[in-house]
């Protein structure tokens, strides 16, 4: 006699499914997942884990955390990062020391694999959430991540 219980179970499960989608239908106006992108450009905030581009944060004194160790350059599988470095005199100790001149980042070659960020010993670079990367000229995708005249944050190397 599973015939009638089958019918009962069938109708019950169908109604359960319909109640689930019905709830979605009623709440969809508030909880829509879709972002109406160009309209909400000002308020749109990408989630923290979004991999848009590699950035190098600077503090207010225009200091970054990159020591120029070049581990990211070695880790990068497709030559996206190019570090142009120089030996300069350290003001405090007076010794000659390696420091970066330009941290060149080719966004056009980057696959957002994140190996450079994983490998960085001083957390100098991290993910930026900007995604509006389309440009008319691809040379503009080659960026220098350290600001001009920026220097190494003291205490990073210790």
């Amino acid at each position: 006699m599973s015939y009638f219980s089958d019918i009962y179970e069938g109708i019950k499960t169908l109604l359960t499914g319909m109640s689930v989608t019905g709830k979605y239908f009623i709440t969809s106006r508030k909880g829509a997942i879709t972002q109406q992108y160009p309209d909400n450009r000002e308020t749109l905030k990408m989630f923290d884990r979004f991999r848009g581009e590699v950035i190098m944060p600077h503090n207010e004194d225009n200091e970054h955390r990159c020591t120029g160790c070049q581990k990211c350059e070695i880790a990068c599988p497709n030559g996206t990062i190019e570090i142009i470095w120089d030996r300069g005199i350290d003001e405090e100790t007076g010794k000659k020391k390696k420091k970066i001149d330009q941290f060149v980042y080719h966004l056009s070659m980057c696959t957002m694999c994140g190996l450079c960020i994983d490998v960085c010993p001083t957390d100098a670079i991290e993910w930026g959430q900007n995604f509006e990367n389309s440009v008319y000229d691809r040379t503009t995708l080659t960026r220098v991540l350290n600001e001009p005249n920026s220097k190494l944050m003291p205490g990073v190397e210790d």
Binding site: F25, G31, A32, I33
Partner: peptide
């Protein structure tokens, strides 16, 4: 439109 609302789209 109804399909979109059922799937939490617009």
């Amino acid at each position: 439109r109804v399909a979109a609302w059922f799937q939490l789209r617009i």
